[in-house]
């Protein structure tokens, strides 16, 4: 469903991604690991359509279409979801209004009628239970005054509401204690179906104890330098990234 071919991208004239190729099929979980500054978040930004990042070469195909032609909102309507590393606080915009607008804009794009208020509230309740988010959070402004863990849970809640085909989770584990990590991972696992896929971006292997990937890729200096099964994550945990760096230098 997602095909990335030889992707090059830069931020403010500095090349960050230097030829990435990746293929994600329905139902697969891909983990992308790598040291800080290797380009993990830039890859997530390209997929979600952040304007700051400029693609200079290569292509990204989504179900056969050129993803890079689509606006961020169109990508969302197409079923792509980005879980933010730093979810944004939006004072004065209520979670309810935010989610209602998001869902109804997506329905509109698909030619569907807006959800009735009662159906919407039912959906909210259902998804809240699923991802174990405290009821109080959804009656507040978007992320305003949320703790780090609450913000990340809220990302998973939004993902549950929008039911994406592809979820890109950008360092969802950063700043989480082990309980919050478990809640977030449980949410992701519960939402998994044979049709939808995820790309889990992480620095640590810790999250992958809870979310079992089908593939692990190591991103280093803007390139995928190693791809393997889930055992690669364990090896990285044990040996650190230096091992990969050394291997590359020797090659």
């Amino acid at each position: 469903m997602l095909v990335i071919n030889n992707l090059h991208a830069e931020i403010n004239g500095k090349e960050i991604l230097k030829g990435i190729s990746l293929k994600v099929n329905p139902g697969e979980v891909h983990a992308i690991m790598g040291p800080n500054g290797s380009g993990k978040s830039t890859l997530a930004s390209v997929l979600a359509g952040r304007e700051l990042v400029m693609v200079t070469a290569g292509e990204v195909l989504w179900e056969g279409k050129n993803l890079l032609d689509l606006s961020p909102e169109e990508r969302s309507h197409e079923g792509i979801f980005l879980g933010f590393q730093y979810p944004v606080e939006i004072p004065g915009v209520s979670m309810v209004n935010f989610m209602k607008t998001a869902i109804n804009e997506s329905r509109k794009a698909k030619g569907m009628e807006p959800l009735s208020p009662s159906d919407f509230l039912k959906l909210m309740r259902e998804k809240k239970n699923l991802v174990e988010i405290e009821s109080g959070l959804t009656s507040r402004s978007v992320n305003e005054g949320f703790s780090g863990g609450e913000k990340k849970k809220n990302e998973i809640f939004q993902m549950a509401m929008l039911e994406p085909k592809l979820a890109v989770l950008d360092e969802t584990d950063s700043g989480l204690d082990i309980d919050a990590l478990r809640v977030v991972a449980n949410g992701v696992n519960k939402l998994k179906t044979p049709q939808n896929s995820s790309i889990v971006i992480t620095h640590y292997q810790r999250l992958l104890d809870f979310i079992i990937p089908d593939f692990v890729h190591v991103l280093y200096k803007g390139k995928i330098v190693k791809s393997s099964g889930k055992e690669l994550a364990l090896e990285l945990e044990e040996k650190g990234y230096d091992w990969i760096k050394k291997e590359l230098e020797q090659a």
Binding site: S71, P72, S76, L82, I90, F98, A102, S106
Partner: peptide, 10 residues
């Protein structure tokens, strides 16, 4: 960008 990434138009 956050709002747009959730499918909300500019």
């Amino acid at each position: 960008f956050y709002l747009r990434s959730r499918g909300i138009s500019e």
